[in-house]
Structure formats: C-alpha cells, structure tokens
C-alpha cells in the first residue's frame, strides 16, 4: 500500500545518466486510522455499558386494620425465609414445621413447580428475610420473582417462632 509516486520527469537526461529514484515522504496512515477508530469504539462501548440499571420496587402501605390485610389461600402460598450464609428455608402453606432448606440456584425450580401446580390466582409467595440475610439476598430473591414471572408476592419479617426455628436449624447445621 505504501505509496511511491514517482513523477515521470518531463525532460530526459542523457542515456548514461541513471534516474535517481525520489523516495516518497508519505507514510501509510491506514493502520493509524484503524487504531483510532478501534479506540473510539472501545471508549463508546465502555462508557455506555457502565451505566447502572435500577430495579423498581413498590412496597404496600402498612395497614393497621387486620381486615385490610391481603388474604392468602393456604394451598397457594409458599414461604421463603432468607437465612444466614445464602441459605433459603421454605415451606408450603401454613406449617413452618415442614421447613426445608435450599439455596439461591435451586429455589427457581421450587418456585416454578409451585407455580405449575397452583392456579395463578391463588399463588402467593411470602418472602421473609431474617436478621442475618444480606441486601444481596433480598435483591436476588426479588429478581427471582421477576425471572419467574411471579406477580403476587410480599416481603415481610419472619414471626418470632419462625426466627427461632431458623436459629435452631442454623445451629444444628453449623451455619456460621
């Protein structure tokens, strides 16, 4: 690609005189342009990518009157309690004694199974993060609701009984 523009000189020299080749001073700038545009593309992409996204969260109004509380069918409810060390304790219906343990990856299948086996209008998920759950846990589980397309869920504090039970399970399981 390097350019060599040798002008055909108008006047001819004598037959014995060799033409001295004039070296072009031009440099091929194509790679430099390539590099420039590559850098531009890189900067544009990295700047737009770093914009943080936001997740919308709407909380219900606290009601003082117990009659105003949302009624949940026992058959349609699934309670997820978020405990220490990224562990989820869950139980179906209204019976915390049948509590089972799972993690954040496996919980999707449990939610989906419940969703399949329950009529859509009865399905209700209750999320109870306990004192040792982290903010990440809470966001992850809310995100899971989005991923699994669950529209009816609530976030409440666990009852003292449930909290005690989690504490016991954690102690016996040796969760730090």
């Amino acid at each position: 690609m390097a350019e060599m523009e040798v002008k055909s000189s108008g006047h001819k020299k004598g037959p014995g005189v060799k033409k001295s080749k004039k070296q072009s001073t031009r440099v091929d700038l194509t790679p430099m342009v390539d590099l420039g545009f590559l850098l531009i593309t890189f900067f544009i992409f990295t700047t737009t990518m770093s914009q943080p996204t936001s997740m919308n969260l709407s909380m219900p109004k606290d009601t003082k009157n117990p009659d105003d509380n949302t009624k949940v069918k026992e058959s349609g409810s699934l309670t997820l309690m978020l405990g220490k060390g990224n562990v989820i304790y869950y139980y179906f219906g209204n019976d915390p004694s049948k509590m089972q343990t799972t993690g954040y990856k496996a919980v999707r299948q449990i939610i989906l199974d419940k969703k399949k086996s329950t009529p859509a209008e009865d399905l209700f998920l209750i999320i109870k993060p306990d004192k040792d759950a982290t903010y990440k846990n809470a966001v992850d589980i809310l995100d899971e609701m989005n991923i699994d397309d669950i529209s009816r869920y609530a976030m409440v504090d666990p009852t003292p009984d449930e909290y005690d039970k989690i504490q016991q399970t954690e102690k016996s399981g040796g969760v730090q």
Partner: peptide, 16 residues
C-alpha cells in the same frame, strides 16, 4: 421512606 408515604423506589443494580 414509608413514614413519608413513599412506596416506590429504584434499587440500583448491575445489569445481568
């Protein structure tokens, strides 16, 4: 927030 009757928030997260 709730005490101020605000019920809608945006939680800042990283895209995934």
């Amino acid at each position: 927030f709730k005490k101020n009757d605000i019920y809608k928030y945006n939680l800042i997260t990283n895209a995934e």
